[in-house]
Amino acid sequence: MSFGGPQWPQEPHQQQHQPFQQPYQQQPPYEQSYDTGTPDWSALAEASEARARRRRWLLIGGGALATAAIGTIIAVAIVSANKGGDDNKASATGSTTPELPTDTTKPQPSFSSVAPPPPPNPMDFISTVQKDKAPLTPESLFPGKQLTVGERVYKKGATSSTTNCATAAMAGLGPVLQKHGCTRVIRATYERDGVAITVGVALFDAQAAALKAKEQVQGGITPLAGSGVGGFCQVKTVCLRRANSLGRYAYFTQAGYTSGKKVTEADAVVYKTSDDVGTFAFNQIYARGRAQASAAAASPAPAG
């Protein structure tokens, strides 16, 4: 049984100009009286006055027409000037044709056609012993004095590390580890509410060997008592065993009651404990790969 884990323009208003109308005034009739030889000076004076008034009205009307014509000419000139300015502005700012450099002797910018390398894959660093160089101890793999998962707090018990992989295994697991080249087993025990679990992480030189050890698993990891946790999963006691692998690591768990009670499929608390600790081991192993990948990205190897 395996663990999963660590994805709007309106046109301007046009003013209507009425044509200039000259004031009209009815002229008095020209009257001349004939006498036997003496002019009618009174009539002549009235006629002269009428002619003078008519000339004044003509002058006034002509002046008004001239004024209106001048105003029209000025308005047309202003509109033309504005239109010309807009056209010039559009001409100055609306050009989309770029200017090309004429001096080709100056250095021109260049761009690399080579794409940057992808970031390192964490799995590359935990899949072979050649790249997995970060220090590894029980404390770095299982740090702290307890494990907290949600609201569940597990007290950490004893830890151990051995290069004699068979001594950390029982009921047939030892020979499987040796067969595939196990180089080290690191164990840690956790306990909560009378349920204890030991997780053992076995190291191999390559990913393929760890995968085979998981597939051919027999027995389980040896429970590790001590540091406040009593013995559990002794001989003839039924416990929950599981196995999985990640990169060049295979990891195994064995969980049961510290009272010696047999584990059944109805014991959800034991299964939950196994899930929590197994997922924690998975995350810790993957974190090693991520940390080494980040370090490699920050300090790339020099070009040869």
Rank of each mutant, 00 (worst) to 15 (best):
V201T: 13
T279S: 14
G181M: 00
T253H: 05
A75E: 04
G219C: 04
E11F: 01
A69Y: 09
Q14I: 12
K155A: 08
V238A: 12
K83P: 01
I126F: 09
L44T: 04
F280H: 15
K155L: 06
P302G: 00
G228N: 07
F232S: 05
P107M: 08
A75P: 00
L246G: 11
T97P: 02
A50W: 02
S42K: 10
S95L: 13
S294N: 05
T93N: 08
D205T: 15
S2C: 10
A75M: 07
N88K: 14
P117Y: 02
G194M: 06
A287I: 03
R242N: 15
M123T: 05
S2Y: 12
Q25C: 01
G256P: 00
T273V: 13
V238Y: 08
M170R: 13
N283T: 13
A66Y: 03
P101K: 12
G260V: 01
G144N: 10
R192Q: 09
A303R: 11
T258Q: 15
W41N: 02
N82C: 07
G94N: 06
G62F: 01
S259K: 09
A90E: 14
G5M: 05
A69R: 08
G157E: 03
R242K: 15
A266N: 13
P143W: 06
R241C: 11
D132Q: 07
T96D: 14
Q25K: 10
L65I: 12
D124C: 09
R290I: 10
D205P: 04
R248N: 12
V176T: 15
P9Q: 06
A92E: 13
G226N: 03
K262F: 12
R290P: 04
Q15P: 13
P118S: 04
S91C: 10
G181K: 02
P39D: 02
M123Q: 14
G256Q: 03
Q218R: 10
A77M: 06
W41F: 04
K155Q: 10
T253S: 12
A47G: 09
Q284R: 13
P135D: 12
G61E: 03
T97V: 14
D35R: 08
L58W: 14
Q15F: 07
D276R: 02
A66G: 08
T128Q: 03
T159L: 13
R187A: 01
R288D: 02
G85L: 15
E151L: 04
P109F: 00
Q284K: 11
A296V: 08
T264S: 14
T273F: 11
Q146N: 15
I70C: 09
V76I: 15
A293P: 01
A90P: 01
A43T: 02
A171H: 08
C239Y: 06
T104E: 14
G157S: 06
R54M: 09
D40M: 03
Q207D: 13
A196T: 02
Q292A: 15
R242L: 14
Q15E: 12
S112I: 04
Q108H: 11
A213D: 02
V217C: 02
N244Y: 15
Q15S: 12
A210P: 00
S127G: 14
Q18V: 05
G62T: 11
Q292H: 02
G194I: 04
Q218F: 00
